[in-house]
Amino acid sequence: MVFIIFGKRLATLRKEKGISQYEFADRIGFSRGQVANYEQGKREPDYETLQKIADFFNVSTDYLLGRTDNPDLIEEKNEESLLDPELGVFFKEIKNAPEDRQEQLRKIWEIIKSEGNREAGDKQ
């Protein structure tokens, strides 16, 4: 299933760029048959090939593999990549919450931070 999505996205990106399978194959160093097999889901790319294709189209490998629908290289991961995975989910849920709920959660976070700062001051 993943490589069917990969094939469809590869074909779509190639067509959006207005290039044929032959031209794409030539520009990236593949055979036209190899490109056709990828697009039809008959062949799976290795990591280096996947990265090469993502770089060519300036999209993320996650997008090519169907793990996200956002083709942009830089997603919401900037802050999340620095967090524990469980906290990342927590912060993502905050981001997706309604604005009034986000404000409540910000206030709660400020209370937690101020208590932490106060406790740190008590220990010194």
Rank of each mutant, 00 (worst) to 15 (best):
G116M: 13
F56L: 04
E76H: 07
I112D: 01
I28G: 03
I112E: 03
Q34A: 12
R27L: 15
Q104L: 13
K15F: 06
Q51A: 12
K123T: 08
F57W: 13
L13H: 06
G33D: 14
K77N: 12
G7I: 09
Y22K: 14
T49G: 10
N78S: 11
K52V: 00
G29I: 02
E99D: 11
K8T: 09
W109T: 09
N96G: 02
S20Q: 08
K123M: 08
G18N: 11
G41I: 08
D62M: 02
I111K: 12
F24Y: 14
Q21T: 10
N70W: 01
K42F: 10
S114E: 15
G18A: 03
Q21G: 13
Q51H: 12
R9E: 09
S114K: 14
Y38S: 03
A120T: 09
R32K: 15
Q104V: 11
E80C: 05
I4M: 13
E103A: 10
L64S: 04
N37A: 15
D26H: 10
E80V: 10
E48M: 03
L13F: 04
T61A: 08
D72E: 15
F90P: 00
E39N: 07
L13N: 07
E76A: 05
M1P: 06
G116P: 00
D46P: 03
I5F: 10
I94D: 00
K15T: 14
L73G: 11
A54Y: 09
K17P: 00
G66S: 12
N78I: 09
E86V: 04
F57I: 10
L105D: 03
K42R: 15
F6P: 07
I111F: 13
R118P: 00
V35L: 03
L64V: 04
E86F: 05
R14N: 03
F30Y: 15
Q124A: 09
E110G: 00
R14W: 05
E16G: 13
R27W: 04
G66R: 12
D84T: 05
L10V: 06
L65W: 08
Y22S: 11
Q34E: 11
E93N: 14
D46E: 14
K15D: 11
N70M: 01
R118Q: 07
D62Q: 04
K17Y: 07
Q51C: 07
Q104K: 13
E16C: 08
D69K: 12
E110C: 00
E99A: 12
N96F: 02
E115A: 02
A11E: 15
T12F: 14
E103W: 02
M1T: 05
F57L: 10
E39Y: 11
E23R: 13
D100V: 08
I112Y: 11
Y22Q: 13
Q102V: 09
L83K: 08
I4D: 15
D62F: 02
G88D: 02
R118N: 06
S20M: 05
A11C: 11
L65F: 06
D122A: 12
N70I: 02
P71T: 01
E115H: 04
F24M: 15
K77T: 12
E93Y: 05
W109M: 11
T61F: 01
K92R: 14
G7W: 12
P98T: 06
S114M: 10
D84Y: 11
K95Q: 12
S31N: 08
I108F: 15
K77R: 10
E99G: 00
D46K: 13
